[in-house]
Structures are given as C-alpha cells and as structure tokens.
C-alpha cells in the first residue's frame, strides 16, 4: 500500500553539504511564514541553534521586503547566517552575508573548508573530494534523545531504535533496525534516491532531499509498522515492508 505523505506545497528544508538548514521562501511571503509557523509549532526547537541559510534565488522581492522577511524570521528566533541567491542590489549593511552554495561569495579560499562542522564526533571528517565514494556508518546501539548523528558522507545504519528527540541526518539512506521515534533525514546533501527504512515507524519527522513530513501528516495505517520512505518528484511516498 503506497501513500503520498506530502502535499504539493511543503516547505523545503535542505541540509546542504555542511548541514546548514536552507530555507527557500516562496510568494506570497505571508503564506510561506504561516506554513513555517505551522512546521515550527510541530517540531519545537527544530531551528534552534542551527545555522540557517535563506535562499532567495528566483524570489521577486526588493530590499525592504527582504529586511521585513529577515525581521519576521528573527521574531521567530530563526537566525540567518547567510543569504543565498540574492541580487547584490537588494543586500545591504546590517544584513547577513551573501553566500553561494553555503559558502561566502567573496572568499574563494574559504570555499574549500566546511563552514560549519556538525559531525558525529566519532566520524573523521572526509575531504570533500572523497565524498564521491559512498561510505557507511553503523551504530550498534540505540540513539538516545538529544543525540544527533550527522553523516553527510553516506548511509547510516542503526542497530537499535532512534528515540523521540534524537535525529539521524545522512547524505545517503537511513536504515533503522528498531523503532524510529525521532527524526530521520536522508539525502540531506541533495540525493533524491536516498530512502529511509525502519522496523517501526513512530517518527516525529522524515525528510528526503529536503522534502519533509511531520508525524501527523503520515497515514495512520503506517504507524507502528515496518516502513520504507522514498521520494517521487516532490512527494514522500511510504509503504509497509513485509
């Protein structure tokens, strides 16, 4: 049984290579903010303490509107570390720096270094070139509430459960031999083929390539079941595993 888990206009959250969360607003901004509030209210703390990049590529707004948008976001305690895809004319002093692909535009030397390292401490940082080879991280115990496993290099396999309030962020697929009660984000650096598998779906959030779905948007028939999730276009699909 296949169910579509996402509506057409979900908010796209992307963990870029360095796992800054990227927010890409669309117009009208009011409506987008409403959906953001909805997401934030259902995933308390999701943006807290996370680097957030505002991607305004192709967004028809002027400098005043951009200032307003940044103000609205800061009212929501979302602090923007940089702005991506903005025409220079709409940027100005007092605004976050312009970024390109999660890197400051002006300084090419910096571009070779990760901006933010948010890795699982056990994992040795791999050189960016090595990322072409998919790697695997195997965790042999439950992932506890408050723990974050971040592995942009490839797949994450957990032999155990992922607790409510814990999260797995993988560049590749996420395999959980246990219950998924927290968050799983697969394909976080842009991989539409990544999937999420778990023995028991009780997730707070699943996301693939930036398309996310919250618990209450998931079909009730899938709860508690062994499930796999994948992406078809802009929709997260899910079905029970036999």
């Amino acid at each position: 049984m296949t169910k579509v888990l996402t509506d057409a206009r979900s908010i796209r959250i992307k963990g870029r290579s360095f796992l800054a969360v990227v927010l890409s607003p669309d117009l009208p901004v009011d409506e987008w903010l409403t959906r953001l509030d909805d997401l934030a209210s259902r995933s308390a703390g999701f943006f807290l303490g996370r680097p957030v990049v505002l991607d305004v590529t192709d967004l028809e707004i002027n400098r005043t509107q951009l200032m307003e948008l940044i103000g609205e976001l800061s009212n929501r305690n979302v602090s923007i570390m940089g702005i991506e895809g903005a025409r220079p004319s709409i940027l100005g002093p007092g605004m976050p720096p312009a970024l390109k692909g999660g890197r400051p535009v002006s300084d090419e030397a910096v571009a070779k270094e990760p901006i933010i390292e948010l890795r699982n401490s056990d994992v040795k940082p791999a050189a960016p070139e090595a990322r072409a080879v998919l790697q695997s991280l195997v965790i042999r115990e439950p992932v506890r509430s408050g723990q974050s496993v971040i592995f942009p290099e490839g797949d994450v396999t957990v032999i155990g459960s992922v607790a409510s309030g814990a999260e797995i962020i993988a560049g590749g697929s996420v395999h959980i031999y246990g219950a998924l009660r927290g968050r799983a984000m697969a394909g976080s650096i842009g991989n539409t083929a990544a999937r999420i598998f778990c023995r028991k779906l009780e997730a707070e959030l699943v996301a693939i390539d930036g398309i996310y779905k919250m618990a209450e948007d998931m079909a009730p028939g899938l709860r508690g079941q062994p499930v796999q999730c994948w992406l078809e276009g802009e929709a997260i699909m899910a079905e029970t595993l036999i």
Binding site: R144, S145, A163, S164, G165
Partner: peptide
C-alpha cells in the same frame, strides 16, 4: 509517563 521516559533516555545518552 512519556516525559519521564524521554528525560531518562536523554540521561542514558549522557551516561554513555
């Protein structure tokens, strides 16, 4: 109850 269980889970993570 759920909040106590979640906090305990968090503590187990710290113990490890």
């Amino acid at each position: 109850e759920v909040s106590s269980v979640r906090d305990s889970d968090r503590i187990i993570g710290l113990l490890d």
